[in-house]
């Protein structure tokens, strides 16, 4: 009902002004600046125009390709597992007759209180070669030989996947729970009166209500995974043999380790931007298709 006279519009811009100014300076400008930088070559603060030289370098850079592959692998394996797990746990927790519901919920949610650095400490120590996890699995006779979590290229990836899943499943579960609790109980009551079986209720009532959440959590998790840095920098340092090198970590190393190469690092960062844009586009298409009956 706001009036759209000139005076009130001005008032509106006064409210949004401080934020817009800061964003221009610390967001818009850096985005454009890194686009410009990606066209520069050179080390340290000495740039010279290099045109598409950096992009050519991408195609020659084995570490970059490895980081890209690792990031995409993590994405494709980890995100679906976590979302499915979060949904499963939410559905299990949504049963009002469940005893100790609040306790379970709090416990499962607890990991997302820790900082990314703090839980890196935990995982690095628990997954040591003689560490508690290997001991435990041996005691259960699941393993007869310890797993070299930190020094094997395959298991290091598994470790990172386990770590991220531990940290974020509870977080995502909360969104599913909220969506489940938004479903009118009377809909289920009506379905029961109509004699609709349990699995059909789940399929026709519960699942449709969860699809927007699946979309939302998939997008946020994907963006998060594309930016994966804290864990790999602290647990594995990208190793062994770059097996857990991610794009963000690589950008960091290019920029702030050894001889900084800002221009090339900016180019790599635009790879992430392009990936996010492609994925956002898919999300947009999915959301639009869903709106069509």
């Amino acid at each position: 009902m706001a009036q759209s006279s000139g005076k009130t519009t001005l008032t509106g811009w006064l409210f949004t002004g401080p934020a817009l100014m800061l964003l221009t300076f610390f967001m818009v400008y850096p985005i454009l600046s890194s686009l410009w930088m990606s066209l520069q070559v050179g080390k340290g603060m000495n740039f010279s125009f290099g045109g598409f030289a950096n992009m050519w370098r991408l195609t020659q850079d084995a570490v970059f390709q490895k980081a890209l592959l690792n990031t995409l692998t993590l994405l494709v394996v980890q995100v679906p597992i976590m979302i499915a797990l979060a949904m499963l746990l939410a559905v299990a927790l949504n049963d009002p007759s469940l005893k100790g519901r609040a306790l379970f919920r709090t416990a499962i949610f607890l990991p997302c209180v820790t900082s990314l650095v703090a839980y890196s400490v935990l995982f690095k120590s628990m997954f040591a070669y003689d560490g508690v996890v290997n001991r435990f699995l041996e005691a259960l006779h699941i393993l007869d030989q310890p797993i070299p979590w930190l020094s094997d290229t395959f298991w290091a990836k598994v470790l990172i996947i386990l770590a991220i899943t531990w940290r974020w499943t509870g977080y995502n579960m909360i969104f599913f729970l909220a969506a489940l609790q938004n479903i009118e109980p009377s809909i289920y009551e009506a379905a029961r009166i109509d004699g609709i079986p349990r699995w059909a209720q789940f399929q026709k009532i519960t699942l449709p209500a969860l699809i927007p959440v699946v979309l939302f959590t998939t997008v946020t998790s994907t963006i998060g995974t594309l930016q994966l840095f804290d864990e790999v920098n602290n647990i594995t340092l990208g190793g062994p043999a770059n097996a857990t090198m991610t794009l963000s970590l690589y950008i960091y190393q290019l920029s702030f380790k050894f001889m900084p190469s800002f221009g090339y690092a900016a180019t790599v960062s635009y790879v992430i931007v392009v990936l996010v844009m492609i994925l956002s586009f898919f999300q947009f298409v999915a959301a639009r298709d869903r709106r069509r009956p």
Partner: peptide
Amino acid sequence: SERVFAGLLAMLSVPFAALMIPLFVT
């Protein structure tokens, strides 16, 4: 203002890695 806001939302998905170098230089 709605257009500006849509622009902000679009920037929400720009990863920090893409900003940190120019930010550091600034």
